[in-house]
Design a binder for these strands. Structure first.
Length: 495
RNA sequence: GGGCCGUUAGCUUAGUUGGUAGAGCAGGGGACUCUUAAUCCCAAGGUCGAAGGUUCGAAUCCUUCACGGCCCA
C-alpha cells in the first residue's frame, strides 16, 4: 500500500503541500502560545454582552479548528479547547490582505492561536473579532466528520484520540472518571487512610482467585507475576502498623474480555484495623454516594435501569438470596455436599442453566452467579459466602461453612468485595492447604501457598476490615457507560 | 470456545431478484463581510475487510480467515 492511499489520499497530499508552504513562510510548530485565555471562562465573563456589541480590551485564545465558514471577505473559524468552543470573527479589513489570505490554508484539525476583542454577532454568537492569529500546529489528516462525529466503535477504541477530539460525550466520561477517582481518594484521605504503592511485579501472585500474567526478570533470572491483587502486601502494611491503608492501581488478570472485563483494570483496595465487614459495608455505601455526587447525583441510569444509590443499601445473606430466587437452601442439612446441592439443582429443574461444579463452594458460586446475580439491579450487599471460595475471610461465628464477607452488586455487576480479614495464622495456613489441594485437583485459579505472608501474619495482625472495589465498573455505573471499554482510554483489543 | 450481526471513499452512509457502486461531510477550483450541519456552481475521490469458490457476470450467493459488536459458555 503506498503512502498516499494509506494516509487518506488527496487530502493528505494537499495538506502535506500546505505544510511545505507554511514551513517556507515560517515556524509552523511554535513552542507556546502565552498568555492564553480559556474559552469556557470567556463565555461566562461575556454572557451579558449584547448582540452587535464589542467589548473593550483584548483576549488571546488557542485551540483546534473544528469549523471554518468562508464568506468572501469574512471568515468564521471555530476554535475548541478543553473548556469549550469559540467562534473567531475574521475580517479582511481587520487582518489585511496577507493574513486574511493565509486563512485559506488553515484546515479543520489545525491548531490556531488568535488575539482580538470579544464581540457578539448580530445573530447572537459570542465571538472574538480577531486582529491577529497564528498557526500553532498543522493537521495532516482529515478529522472525523463534524456532524455525526466518530461512531465506528472499533475506531473509537483503536484511535481514542479521534474519539476524544470528535465526541464530547466520550471526553466527558474520562473527565468524570478523574473526578470519581479524586472523590474516592478524598473520601479515604479524609478518614485518615494512607495511600501506598506496592509491587506490580510479584514473585508470587495472590490475594484473589485468578490466572496471572507471567513475565521474566533477566538479571534476577526468575519469573515474576503481574499482580492480580494488592491484598497480601496491604495486609503486611496493616501488620506493620499502618492502621488505615489503601492502594488504587492496576491489577492484571489473564482471563477473558467482556463488557465488564479488561485484562488490566483499576482496583481500589482498603484495609482498616479494628473494624469488621459491617463497618466496611457502611463505608462502601458512603464512598459510592460521595463519588456519585462528584459527577451528578445519586440517581443514575445504566443499561436502561434507573438506579438509586442512596444509602443505606439492603443487606442479604447469600443463603437467603439463593433461597428466595431458587427455593434451594444452601445452608440446609440436606445440602451439605456438592452431590446434595446438585440433586437439589436438578430437582428444581435448574441443571439446564447452572453449570455443575466440582465442589460445594464452587457450586454455590455458580448457582448464585446464574440465578441471583443478574437480578441484583439496585445496590445490594450479598453477605456470608462459602468458606471454600473465600480463603482470606473469617468464618462466621454461627456457621463455619460461611465467612464474614460481602459483595456489593449494582446492575447485576459485582463492584465490591470485602471481608472481616482472616488474621489467625493457623487458620490461614489451613486455607492455603485447601487451596493447594484445589490446585492439585486442577483448579488453575486456586491460591498458592505464601509462606512469607504467613510469617508476617505470625507476628500478629490486628482484626481488620478489607475491601476491593472495581473502579472501572464504578465509573461505568456513574457515567452510564455500557461497556468497560468506554471507561478505559486504551482498552485491550486484538491485532 | 459457541451462536447471531456487522466491515462500501478520510468520516457518516445508500446500494432492489447477482448486471462492475450513489450521496452528504471533509478535501480541490470558483462566488459570497453575520455564518454557525452556512449556502450556491464545477470537478475529483472506491482493488466494496482479506483470500478462495460458484457464475457469462459478484458489494450482493458459498467457504475459510481477520477485526469489531451483541448474546451465550
Amino acid at each position: 500500500m503506498d503512502e498516499q492511499s494509506e494516509h487518506g489520499g488527496d487530502v493528505f497530499a494537499e495538506r502535506r503541500a500546505k505544510l511545505a508552504a507554511w514551513r517556507a513562510a515560517g515556524d509552523v510548530y511554535p513552542t507556546e502560545y502565552q498568555p492564553r485565555d480559556e474559552i469556557g471562562p470567556l463565555h461566562e465573563a461575556y454572557a451579558a454582552l449584547e448582540a452587535g456589541q464589542d467589548s473593550a480590551g483584548s483576549q488571546r485564545v488557542a485551540g483546534r479548528v473544528v469549523a471554518r465558514r468562508v464568506h468572501g471577505k469574512l471568515t468564521f473559524v471555530v476554535l475548541k479547547d478543553l473548556s469549550g468552543e469559540l467562534q473567531l470573527f475574521c475580517q479582511l479589513d481587520m487582518l489585511g490582505d496577507e493574513r486574511y489570505a493565509a486563512l485559506e490554508h488553515v484546515d479543520l484539525g489545525d491548531f490556531v492561536g488568535a488575539e482580538g476583542r470579544m464581540m457578539r454577532t448580530r445573530r447572537g454568537e459570542l465571538s472574538l473579532r480577531i486582529t491577529s492569529w497564528q498557526l500553532l500546529s498543522k493537521s495532516l489528516r482529515p478529522m472525523p466528520e463534524k456532524y455525526h462525529g466518530l461512531t465506528s466503535v472499533e475506531t473509537r477504541y483503536r484511535k481514542r484520540y479521534l474519539d476524544l477530539a470528535a465526541n464530547d460525550d466520550s471526553r466527558d466520561v474520562f473527565i468524570k472518571r478523574a473526578r470519581i477517582v479524586a472523590a474516592v481518594r478524598h473520601f479515604l484521605d479524609d478518614r485518615g487512610f494512607v495511600e501506598v504503592e506496592t509491587p506490580v511485579l510479584q514473585p508470587l501472585y495472590g490475594g484473589a482467585l485468578a490466572k496471572p500474567f507471567i513475565t521474566h526478570h533477566n538479571e534476577l533470572e526468575r519469573d515474576l507475576y503481574l499482580r492480580i491483587a494488592t491484598e497480601l502486601y496491604l495486609k503486611r502494611c496493616i501488620i506493620g502498623g499502618i492502621d488505615r491503608v489503601y492502594e488504587m492501581g492496576k491489577d492484571f488478570r489473564n482471563e477473558g474480555v467482556s463488557f465488564k472485563h479488561n485484562p488490566e483494570f483499576t482496583m481500589l483496595e482498603t484495609y482498616e484495623a479494628y473494624v469488621d465487614y459491617n463497618h466496611v459495608m457502611t463505608m462502601v455505601e458512603e464512598m459510592t454516594a460521595e463519588a456519585a455526587r462528584a459527577v451528578g447525583g445519586l440517581k443514575v441510569t445504566f443499561r436502561e435501569h434507573e438506579i438509586d444509590l442512596t444509602p443505606p443499601w439492603p443487606r442479604l445473606t447469600m443463603r437467603k438470596a439463593i433461597e428466595s430466587e431458587t427455593g434451594i437452601d444452601i445452608g440446609a442439612d440436606d445440602a451439605r455436599t456438592v452431590a446434595d446441592l446438585q440433586a437439589a439443582i436438578k430437582a428444581k429443574g435448574l441443571d439446564e442453566t447452572v453449570p455443575l461444579a466440582p465442589a460445594w463452594g464452587a457450586q454455590v458460586d455458580d448457582l448464585f452467579s446464574e440465578c441471583v446475580e443478574p437480578k441484583l439491579i439496585q445496590p445490594v450487599f450479598i453477605t456470608e459466602h462459602p468458606l471454600e471460595t473465600s480463603p482470606f475471610a473469617k468464618k462466621t461465628p454461627h456457621d463455619p461453612r460461611f465467612v464474614e464477607r460481602f459483595e456489593g452488586f449494582i446492575a447485576g455487576m459485582e463492584l465490591s468485595n470485602a471481608f472481616s480479614e482472616l488474621n489467625d495464622p493457623d487458620d490461614q495456613r489451613e486455607r492455603f492447604m485447601q487451596q493447594m489441594q484445589d490446585l492439585a485437583d486442577g483448579d488453575e485459579t486456586a491460591h498458592r501457598l505464601d509462606e512469607d505472608f504467613l510469617e508476617a501474619m505470625e507476628y500478629g495482625m490486628p482484626p481488620t476490615g478489607g475491601l476491593g472495589m472495581g473502579i472501572d465498573r464504578l465509573v461505568m455505573i456513574l457515567t452510564g457507560a455500557p461497556s468497560i471499554r468506554d471507561v478505559i482510554l486504551f482498552p485491550a483489543l486484538r491485532g
